[in-house]
Computed example of a mutant assay.
Amino acid sequence: MDFLDKIPKPILAILVGAGFMAIAKPVVLYIQLLLSLFVLQGKNLRKYGPKGTWAVVTGASDGLGKEYATQLAQKGFNIVLVSRTESKLLALQSELETNNAGSAIKTKILAMDFSKNDDGDYAKLKALIDGLDVGILVNNVGQSHSIPVPFIQTPKNEMRDIITINCIGTLKVTQIVAPGMVQRKRGLILTMGSFGGLLPTPLLATYSGSKAFLQHWSTALGGELQGTGVDVELVISYLVTTAMSKIRKTSMFIPNPRKFVKSVLKNVGRSGGAQQMAHTSTPFWGHAIMQWWLENTLGLGSQLALNQNRTMHESIRKRAIRKRERDAKKA
């Protein structure tokens, strides 16, 4: 008490106030997180157009892209399906039109390999959507490393394809679709982000960097388009049971594509776990809570988080190499 008596009252008040804020801020942020995930409602997708409005989905033939197309069709949107394999697109096109025959859903398809960065393919996409009322764009196409790999050992073609598909492809498609949205004064641009873009990830350095690029690009684009009627949202995910993740078993923190996409479309406009970046959402509750604790305990870019991330991916790489060796012996 003698020590406290010697501190001038104004300074003591400042210190007490700072201590209170340090304790209260995490509590307030956690309450905001829970409200965003479980109480507050996302935007009604009808804001982006009546039934029959079009949605463009890239990487549409598998995994999350296929699920986005499926659920948006169920909600009354016509779908433009863009992906590499024409046979898969034709199969999905038939499935969507058959399952939604009662609502007369229309579909269009375009088979294009984003890794080729072919201007002719982008010209075909522009021609395909010309005159369509596109209300939603889902930038889902993406590629990661085949297995975790040190950057200096990364195959040149893999490095090139990751940047070309994840970054250049997303930018070019958005430049084609967004002007019409701005002209119509309504639209939603959803871009798939990743925990890899939040957490610098050793042995996935190129993929991690590509997703960090999309984070800043998407947030900046959202700032540019604010007030135009076009909403921009980067969707952050941890693992989902898709071919890219190579995980088949669901858990509390690893949903299947159906559950994940449902959470995205239900919570458009809500930040979820992404409370520190504008125009960003972590909508699946397990991912959101994980992100909040990482940000408020380890710190996303801390040496401790970096070391743990490296250890995890070194282990994944060793297991993947052993599996390749076993498969090679069987061949």
Rank of each mutant, 00 (worst) to 15 (best):
V141I: 10
G229L: 06
K266G: 06
T70C: 00
E325K: 15
N166D: 14
D231I: 10
Q175F: 05
A18I: 09
E97I: 02
V56E: 04
R322Q: 15
E314F: 03
P255A: 04
T282G: 06
T170N: 13
G19K: 04
L96M: 01
H145I: 08
Q71N: 02
Y207P: 06
P26F: 08
I163R: 01
F38I: 05
S271H: 12
I162A: 01
D2W: 11
I189N: 00
A331C: 02
L33G: 07
G120V: 09
I11R: 02
H313Y: 15
H216S: 14
G142C: 09
S237T: 14
D62F: 06
V261N: 00
F114Q: 08
S271M: 12
L298Q: 10
A91I: 00
P257E: 05
G180K: 11
V235G: 08
F3C: 02
G63F: 09
E295S: 12
A212S: 15
R270I: 07
M181S: 05
A101H: 04
T241I: 12
S83I: 01
K156V: 12
F260L: 10
L89M: 02
V138G: 04
G76C: 02
S271T: 11
V82Y: 05
K66L: 12
G273Y: 09
G65S: 05
S315W: 10
V27C: 09
K259V: 10
K329N: 05
L234G: 03
L29Q: 15
S144R: 10
D121F: 08
K116L: 15
V138K: 06
S237G: 14
T164C: 06
K75P: 00
A123R: 14
V182Q: 11
K47I: 10
Q32N: 15
Q41C: 05
K106C: 04
K124F: 06
A101R: 11
M277F: 14
S208F: 09
F3V: 14
L110T: 06
D119G: 05
W54A: 08
P257M: 08
V27L: 14
G17L: 13
E158A: 14
R326A: 13
L132S: 03
T170W: 01
I176K: 07
M21I: 15
I105K: 00
N117K: 03
A22F: 10
G222H: 05
T206W: 05
S263A: 15
P155F: 09
W217Y: 15
A13I: 13
I254L: 03
I31H: 07
L137D: 03
S83N: 00
I289F: 05
A320P: 04
G135I: 04
G269F: 09
Q143S: 11
A178R: 11
G223H: 13
T164Y: 06
L110P: 02
L203D: 10
F284K: 09
K88L: 11
S210T: 12
I165T: 11
S87T: 12
L128V: 10
L304Y: 03
L203P: 00
R46K: 14
Q291M: 14
K51S: 12
N256Y: 03
F253K: 09
